[in-house]
Simulated scan of single mutants.
Amino acid sequence: MTRPTFPATLLAAALIAVPMLSLPALAQDAAQDAVQDRAQAATAQTAEGADQVVATVDGQDITLGQMIVMKQSIQDPAMAELPDQALWDMMLDQLIRQTAVAASAEETAGVRAQMELQRRNIMAAAAVSQIAGAEPAEEELQARYDQLFAEAGNATEYNAAHILVETEEKATELKAELDGGADFGDVAEANSTGPSGPNRGDLGWFTADQMVPPFAEAVAAMEPGGVSDPVQTDFGWHIIQLNETRLREAPPLAEVRDEISQMVLREKVEAEIARLVEAAEIQKTEGVDPAALSDIDLLEAN
Rank of each mutant, 00 (worst) to 15 (best):
18 V>Y: 04
19 P>Q: 10
19 P>I: 13
21 L>M: 12
22 S>L: 15
22 S>C: 09
23 L>N: 09
23 L>V: 14
26 L>K: 11
26 L>S: 11
27 A>W: 04
27 A>V: 12
29 D>M: 07
31 A>E: 14
33 D>I: 03
33 D>C: 02
34 A>G: 00
34 A>K: 02
35 V>E: 08
36 Q>G: 01
37 D>W: 09
38 R>G: 03
38 R>L: 11
38 R>V: 09
39 A>Q: 10
39 A>V: 11
39 A>N: 00
41 A>T: 08
41 A>V: 10
43 T>E: 15
43 T>S: 13
43 T>G: 08
43 T>F: 13
44 A>T: 11
45 Q>R: 11
47 A>Y: 08
47 A>H: 12
47 A>W: 04
48 E>M: 12
49 G>L: 08
49 G>K: 09
50 A>V: 08
50 A>R: 10
51 D>F: 09
52 Q>M: 15
54 V>Y: 00
56 T>Q: 14
57 V>A: 01
58 D>M: 05
61 D>Q: 15
61 D>M: 05
62 I>S: 02
63 T>E: 05
63 T>N: 08
64 L>W: 14
65 G>Y: 08
66 Q>M: 13
67 M>N: 00
69 V>N: 15
70 M>C: 10
70 M>H: 15
71 K>A: 13
74 I>D: 04
75 Q>Y: 02
76 D>A: 11
76 D>K: 01
78 A>G: 00
79 M>G: 02
79 M>N: 04
80 A>M: 05
80 A>Y: 02
83 P>D: 06
83 P>A: 10
84 D>G: 10
85 Q>C: 01
86 A>P: 04
87 L>N: 07
87 L>T: 03
89 D>W: 10
92 L>G: 08
92 L>T: 11
93 D>I: 00
94 Q>W: 11
95 L>R: 15
95 L>M: 14
97 R>T: 15
97 R>K: 13
97 R>N: 13
97 R>Q: 13
98 Q>I: 06
98 Q>T: 12
98 Q>L: 10
99 T>V: 05
100 A>M: 07
101 V>R: 10
102 A>Y: 06
103 A>V: 02
103 A>R: 14
104 S>T: 14
104 S>H: 06
104 S>I: 04
105 A>L: 11
109 A>K: 09
111 V>R: 06
112 R>C: 03
113 A>T: 07
113 A>R: 05
113 A>W: 04
114 Q>I: 07
116 E>L: 13
116 E>P: 01
117 L>W: 09
118 Q>W: 10
124 A>W: 02
126 A>P: 03
126 A>N: 03
128 V>T: 03
129 S>I: 04
129 S>A: 11
131 I>H: 03
131 I>K: 02
133 G>I: 05
134 A>P: 02
